[in-house]
């Protein structure tokens, strides 16, 4: 098992004919992701590399029985794409797009909740279950199959941790990027709940950053009811207050979102908080055995 996606997922890509959409669709296919269709309004009936295109998400789902969508639509249209997928009832919506207006996301997220569908992102690298399925933009070659779960806000730090773990011999069950926007879908806690019951996940790495209170909420959940070892890392420890550090959500406002509060909350919950990515790997090694070499 793994969380959210595996080899039985049926994936469509909204915005598959755009520059990013097309490039990453090829990458995902090379990874082994079962991509069953693409959605671009006006291009229904055409094909790209043998993948059928549809005008609407509804038509795509009817024809392909898709249960996951990856969204690569430009920011002005991305919230609409999320809502279209939510209305059709696709159970897992993964939005990679960065720069969606925040009030659009308030409405899109509310609709996802109302329809009972899961949203991952936006402004996220997506998700990777090594050896089975990848939806998003995580580089193909860095992952290795194993039993460490990863959940992170930052895309590039997700890559750093995957690579660091793989090189040290620790494979991953699933790596999940929840994204750097202030209003987003799945939280750290939501993903931890999935890892809690996943038999293939023996330990979890949580990569947080300044801004918001997602990490503090995750710490409270871990203390209450998460029983697997967790290693955490918080980036932006030297960021000045009041400045947006690249991600729309990475900002310390007053005492809200400070790194100290996150580190303290996690430590209080019994989580090992590493100071560097290298230390993350060392800390994981204290909890789990390296993945045997014959597993790919």
């Amino acid at each position: 098992m793994s969380v959210l996606v595996d080899r039985s997922s049926r994936v469509i890509i909204q915005g598959m004919t755009g520059r990013e959409g097309r490039f990453h669709t090829e990458q995902m296919r090379a990874f082994g992701t079962p991509i069953v269709g693409g959605v671009t309004p006006g291009k229904g009936g055409q094909e790209i590399d043998g993948i059928p295109l549809f005008d609407t998400v509804e038509e795509a789902v009817k024809a392909t029985n898709a249960n996951v969508t990856g969204i690569f639509v430009p920011p002005p249209f991305a919230a609409d794409a999320i809502m279209e997928a939510a209305t059709v009832g696709i159970p897992l919506i993964i939005c990679i797009t960065e720069g969606i207006p925040v009030l659009d996301m308030v409405r899109a997220r509310a609709l996802c909740d109302e329809m009972g569908v899961r949203l991952l992102g936006p402004n996220c690298p997506g998700i990777m279950t090594p050896g089975e399925c990848k939806v998003g933009i995580i580089p193909n070659h860095i992952g290795k199959k194993g039993n460490v779960g990863i959940v992170a806000r930052s895309g590039t730090l997700t890559y750093e941790v995957i690579q660091g773990l793989s090189q040290a011999g620790f494979g991953q069950s699933t790596a999940v990027g929840i994204g750097g926007d202030p209003i987003h879908g799945l939280s750290f806690t939501d993903v931890l709940e999935l890892f809690a019951t996943d038999e293939e996940t023996a330990a979890v790495v949580l990569i947080g950053e300044i801004g918001g209170s997602d990490e503090e909420e995750a710490a409270a959940y871990i203390e209450r009811s998460f029983h697997k070892p967790v290693v955490a890392f918080i980036s932006g420890r030297t960021a000045p207050p009041g400045k947006r550090m690249g991600h729309a959500g990475a900002i310390i406002s007053g005492t809200m979102g400070s790194p100290q509060s996150k580190v303290e909350a996690l430590q209080h919950a019994g989580v090992t908080v590493a100071d560097t990515i290298e230390e993350v790997v060392t800390a994981v090694a204290a909890h789990v055995a390296p993945t045997p070499a014959h597993i790919h």
Partner: peptide, 8 residues
Amino acid sequence: NGAGLVMN
């Protein structure tokens, strides 16, 4: 390249 990486 990437907000998290630069913060780090």
